[in-house]
Amino acid sequence: MENRKRMTVVLSLTLIFIVAFTFQAQAGQTYKLGLSLAITGPTSDAGDPYSKGVEDYFNYVNDMKLLGDDKIDCTIRDDQYKTDITKRNFEDFLDQGIVFYLNYSTGSTLALKKDFDEEKMPTIPASFHAGNLVDSSYIFLPIASYSAQAIGLAEYVVNNHKGSTPKVAMFIHPSAFGRGPVSDVEKAVAAGLDMEIVEVVEHGKDLDNTAMLKRLNSKGVQYVISQTIQSPVATMLKDASRLGMVAKTFGEPPPTLSPRSPVQVRTPSWPWPRSTGVMIRLPTPIITPMALWWPRLLPKSFDAPRPGA
């Protein structure tokens, strides 16, 4: 089953490349792409720069003639992090005849999964939720899933922790995007990962996490694995450092941590501003921007678990 699915993915990818190259033969093609994301509304602190990054990148592609005479024309639409609006945008893109679709939120990716399949519309979401791949053959994750990232972090904690079973809390976004990896980490723990998940905190819009951090501390939590957007993490880091849990980052190059911009991740050509995996170690916390870190630290044998598979 597992292999069949992967085969499908690989095959369809190949197909796309073939198709892409076939079209490239006729010079001067314009490929229509669509991107629907949260320029306003929840998570727009990530979505807005993301949209600018995508815009810049495709300008770069066109200007530098990376596709020869061919051009990419990517329409960007705001969906306010709402599934209903995303659906409307997607219908609009289909009417415009896009050949490739870029989506954003976990909720809408899951909701539109069937549409992507029906339309045979290759889609790259900004959400790396592992569930995106279940029962779907047109969604592609360019990097490891949230679950893989979170489990990778968990394994890192277990491998580097000295002493008895490490106590970990998870700090997550109150949405499908945040909740997705939790059950997978729990499965990994059940499967023998020597770690204890003490608490799963769904953060609200709190501007102060002192109480939460103190509570976690009193429960003996030693690490916090985060699965959320920047601003809540920034809030938590600010409070952590005020409480003397000096936050450190790791990854390469280690971004310096200032109170203003605690975690900023941008790769030059492809902007993934959503650094979702963040870890704090208590009482000397370590913070990790996951997106930078996973390819190097993920154990070779590690296989991204797929819920339901």
Partner: peptide, 21 residues
């Protein structure tokens, strides 16, 4: 929505004014 979308691309994202629109 259309207005906010344009505003969101012009205004500095840190203010997040477009969301308030």
């Amino acid at each position: 929505e259309t207005l906010a979308e344009h505003a969101g691309q012009i205004l500095p994202s840190t203010w997040n004014l477009a969301t308030a629109l």
